[in-house]
């Protein structure tokens, strides 16, 4: 199996390069991550993040043949050789496939990602109807892998000002929660030509989301609420 992988170690390399690997795989190597682990067995200087290897932790997002994906749930047979692997686009590179995600998390934190409800909690759980709970489906499943935000040109140009698809998806997750009482503050927080309105609905985010979520739809809902609130 042939791979062409982005390599850069600031300790050693003057500038980034693409390194080719031709590695025999074992029959048990089914996912791209298995192959990367195999490569690392041969060359321990190759660095990447990985953990759960089943698509729930969000560690191993990378750009594979031009598309952002999670290596652990990408079947090797699904992708064309030679497999070109680069770090997620648009974020500073620390080393090899490892990017600096501070900006991404900063935007996530900026939407105040927690249920806000200052009423005294009841003795037992707050009640929520199954229908109201269903509103959170397609939102809370986000794993913060950053595939979406780093596939979004608006996030590439303004990562410091545009919240990005992941953060906005989470923003709507809290707006949609009947237990959260801060919808107005949340809309105020996002009512900004940069924070929300850099989204031009090109839907790269929905296209790459490994969990099948649709941040554009969530962004549209936030915008609708803003317009409704104003009119």
């Amino acid at each position: 199996m042939r791979f062409s992988i982005y390599r850069y170690n600031p300790d050693v390399d003057a500038k980034p390069r693409m390194q080719d690997y031709d590695i025999p795989l074992e029959p048990t190597d089914r996912m791209l991550l298995d192959a990367l682990v195999r490569i690392k067995e041969h060359d321990d200087t190759f660095s990447f993040r990985r953990s759960c290897r089943e698509g729930v932790c969000g560690s191993d997002a990378m750009n594979v043949n031009g598309k952002n994906r999670l290596a652990c749930i990408t079947k090797i047979t699904e992708i064309k050789e030679p497999i070109v692997i680069r770090p997620l686009p648009g974020l500073p590179i620390i080393r090899d496939l490892i990017v600096d995600m501070s900006q991404f998390f900063k935007q996530y934190h900026s939407i105040e990602p927690y249920v806000k409800n200052e009423t005294p909690p009841p003795e037992r759980e707050r009640l929520q109807s199954p229908e109201d709970r269903d509103e959170l489906n397609g939102l809370y499943e986000c794993i913060l892998c950053a595939c979406c935000s780093t596939a979004c040109p608006s996030f590439w140009w303004n990562p410091d000002k545009f919240v990005g698809p992941a953060g906005l998806l989470w923003a709507y997750r809290f707006i949609a929660d009947t237990r959260d009482l801060a919808t107005n503050d949340r809309l105020d927080n996002l009512e900004d030509p940069y924070r929300l309105f850099r989204c031009h609905s090109i839907m790269n985010c929905a296209d790459v989301c490994p969990k099948g979520l649709n941040p554009t739809a969530a962004i549209n809902k936030i915008r609708d609420l803003m317009v409704k609130r104003a009119l």
Partner: peptide, 15 residues
């Protein structure tokens, strides 16, 4: 320190 929420944007979008 960051100052966020310019309180406009939706008008342009609707316009």
């Amino acid at each position: 320190r960051e100052v966020i929420g310019a309180h406009y944007g939706w008008r342009g979008w609707l316009m």
